[in-house]
Computed example of a mutant assay.
Amino acid sequence: MGTIQLKNIKIYAFHGCLVEEGQIGSDYLVNLAVKADLKKASTTDELEDTVDYVLLQKIVQEEMAIRAKLLEHVARRIINSILEKVEAVTTVKVSVAKINPPIGGDVAEVRVTMQQKRNS
């Protein structure tokens, strides 16, 4: 078993409950960690024997492009899509952070983190 991480994927998106957030958008940071059996890839040195992190990045981009009111909803969609499309992944942990959220205070980010294991 091993972990593949994608750290600080920066994406401009349009999530939020406020109408303005859907029109103006803002910066988001996504962090992703997936667990999978990486033993074969460590010996064969072949892409087909591991989890392709280019595909993981693409899934994150696709799901972040679909507007949602809640970060929790976006995180759930990312998890579901990875578990659906990447058979080798056994566990997904994702955090989605809105940078400088419009919450009436000096807050660097608001972050939601969710994790799920594949059902056997």
Rank of each mutant, 00 (worst) to 15 (best):
E46Y: 13
I78W: 07
K39S: 11
R76E: 03
S26A: 14
Q23C: 14
V112E: 01
T113N: 00
I24T: 07
V92T: 06
I82V: 05
K93T: 02
G22R: 15
G104W: 08
V34A: 12
K10G: 03
G105K: 10
T91F: 06
L47R: 14
V54T: 05
V51H: 14
I79C: 04
K69Q: 07
K40M: 12
I9V: 06
D106M: 10
T90C: 10
Q116Y: 04
E84K: 12
V107F: 01
V74H: 09
S42Q: 13
K35S: 08
V112C: 01
P101T: 04
G2S: 14
S26Q: 15
I103Y: 08
V89D: 09
D37F: 07
E109N: 08
L32Q: 05
E48W: 15
I24C: 09
L38V: 03
K85N: 11
E21W: 13
M114I: 00
R76C: 02
K69Y: 04
E62L: 09
A13G: 14
S42W: 08
R67Q: 15
P102G: 05
K39E: 10
G25H: 10
G25E: 12
G16R: 02
I79E: 10
T43I: 06
E46W: 14
K40H: 06
L47M: 15
K117V: 02
S81W: 05
V86P: 11
L83F: 02
I9Y: 05
E21C: 15
K35E: 11
H15M: 14
I99N: 01
I66D: 07
R111C: 03
N119E: 06
L56Q: 11
S81Y: 05
A97R: 08
K10A: 12
R77A: 00
K58D: 11
Y28W: 08
I4F: 10
I78V: 08
I4D: 13
D49S: 12
